[in-house]
Nucleic acid binder design. Structure first.
Lengths: 236, 236
DNA sequence: GTCTATAGTCGGATAGAC
DNA sequence: GTCTATCCGACTATAGAC
């Protein structure tokens, strides 16, 4: 049993060394892929930033493409850690038989807030850029991202919107409506350069982020209440 | 004078040959830069698609970077041909002393329609992709694009929105509000992959485009009328 | 003026030393 | 297991033939 223990300990030491190196490469990869995109990013730069040698990427991940795939998987995990609870609560809510409208609104608002939320953490910044890139210019890894996060967000948001407006999560087709609604928030991510210019900002910090959130939530409520009033009046 | 004439004619022949080659390279460059982005695009591919030799790019434009700059300039020209009249009419309208609200709304609607309008023309598709890329990932040529088109669109749209809501083009700060409003339309360009997936579409053709336009215009009106009603009631 | 052939650079992958 | 030194391919740009 002595032997077993020392073997296990050795295995753990190797495991942690392995995972330490992997984690370090992943962190650097998120940054570099985020800044430059898959094609323009170089494995040399990633290795340099993680203080690893250039052969480490092939050794731990198999190559540049597999490293990128691992990054996308990590992104999915990270996001689910951040908004998984929210999505799960919303999904449970939608499975019930009655849906208090105010709660649907609250979930929608939280989703929109999460979508405008920015961060100074370089990892979060990198993740944001990677997602934006994958949406405008999907790679073969887009599938992982869609199945892991985007699809669930889209589906749940659509049904929450339908609940708030009609009282029924499966009423008619709200997919385009929710996409446009969410577009208000995403505009500040996807057209970042334009908003910085036109608002005369140097960066989007906490104060600016609050202003954006207020506008998005306000206009969202105008849309939702407008649709709801119309639905009450005409049944459509 | 005979000589003068023949010299001029020869010069013109060369000019048209030059401009023919340039135009051909530009068309191909728009396609390739649109598909791959600046870094990933190769001059070989551009030369191949325009049936020119690879040295032609250096000869006519000076290099890959200058070709890209010429592409951006061409994009600005193309867009101004398409929506220049609209912007000019709107700008003239805003310079008057009184602003009939319905006309401001009409201009805004036309701007939004132009923003969702898609096209099968490969040149327009390429232009769209290049603009999307420059917004999410601005290069040094972003300046040209902003000054040539985006800034004007943003400024005019913001003032039109202010007119419709408050009756005064310079009322308060509508920049964020217009950016979010326009975001509804741009979401279908910037997050194209996501909407295709979630709506189960293979492509966005005329029918789908009409559905998108209807949703965007409808929700825009809800925002505008909601803001207007509030302004009437509270003066804010 | 137009093109081919090539120089010079850089990135990803890997063989082989330790 | 870890790293360095090198290979191979692909790219841009250009010199020089026609």
């Amino acid at each position: 049993m002595r032997l077993d223990r020392s073997i296990r300990e050795a295995a753990e030491r190797i495991d942690t060394a392995r995972s330490r190196a992997r984690r370090s490469l992943l962190r650097a990869a998120i940054e570099v892929f985020g800044e430059a995109g898959f094609e323009s990013a170089t494995t040399r730069e990633i290795a340099k930033r993680s203080a690893q040698n250039s052969a480490a990427i092939a050794y731990y991940f198999g190559g540049k493409a597999q490293l990128y795939e691992a990054v996308i998987e990590h992104v999915v995990t990270m996001i689910n850690e951040r908004i998984g609870m929210l999505l799960q609560s919303a999904e449970r809510f939608l499975e019930k038989e009655t849906w208090p409208r105010e709660q649907a609104l609250s979930f929608l608002q939280q989703m929109l807030e999460a979508s405008v939320a920015n961060s100074k953490d370089p990892e979060i910044v990198g993740i944001t850029h990677i997602i934006v890139r994958e949406q405008t210019n999907p790679s073969s890894a887009f599938d992982l991202l869609y199945k892991g996060v985007l699809g669930r967000l889209q589906r749940t948001g659509t049904r929450l919107m339908a609940v708030y407006v009609t009282g029924d999560p499966d009423h008619a087709d709200f997919r385009l409506r929710f996409h446009a609604l969410l577009g208000q928030a995403l505009a500040f991510r996807h057209a970042r350069a334009t908003i910085l210019r036109s608002a005369g900002w140097k960066d989007i910090d906490a104060r600016q982020e609050a202003a954006i959130r207020d506008v998005v939530l306000d206009q969202t409520l105008l849309i939702l209440d407008g649709l709801r009033a119309r639905h009450k009046a005409t049944g459509r």
